[in-house]
Amino acid sequence: MTGRPPTPSPPRVTSTRTAVGALLRKELLLERRVPQVLPAMALFSVVTFVVFRFALDTTSVEGDTASGVLWVTLLFAAMLGAGRLFVADHEEGGIEALLLAPVDRTALLLAKATTFFAFLAFVELIAVPAFAILLLEPGLSLGDVGRLALILALADFGIAVIGTLFGALAIQTRARDLILPLMALPLLVPVVISAAKATAPVLAATGAGAVPGRYLAVLGLYDLVFGLLAYAVFDYLLDD
């Protein structure tokens, strides 16, 4: 212990990148230590495929129907995940702690959206092969997988942004699990339209057709608009 008075140091501001990295590590560590959301989402997807097999009374699907079944399943699994995205932080005061730290608040949006995107990608790694084995008639070639991955990535971005924004919104309400899908599903209809339309030719029994570029363009535009919008308004959800 020296008796020197503390030297005034410039206020330490953690860079957004460092903050996002730290938050991201926290999220992934939490999910690895106590897997909660990912197993639920993956299991939900597989169960939904089984439900579709009996609800549609068919042992195989292709084309438009296959695309529809896949997207309904992924979308509802995503709703399941979005509802849990902020639960731990809300219950244990993680958001308050973050607000006290000298970091840009957008870091939380970036970290949460990236986490959710990673979750969606992980679930699709399980759900899409399961879908191909259980229901899809002609199966998937390597080229199909590549085209599907592009569509999935574009759609996941939009779902991750909307899921994060509205997950943060819904967590403050009394009826959070009730209201989140009611808000998010209509908002995601354009994603479903474009993703399903783009996926249908890939899953066609007659051999994969070309992916219509304009649906990918709509997905990209959607991602851009809501990405920027979420970036602009997310701060206001934290301002307590």
Binding site: P190, I193, S194, Y215, V218, Y222, V225
Partner: peptide
């Protein structure tokens, strides 16, 4: 945005 997507 929604109007555009549905129209497409």
């Amino acid at each position: 945005l929604n109007f555009m997507a549905v129209r497409l």
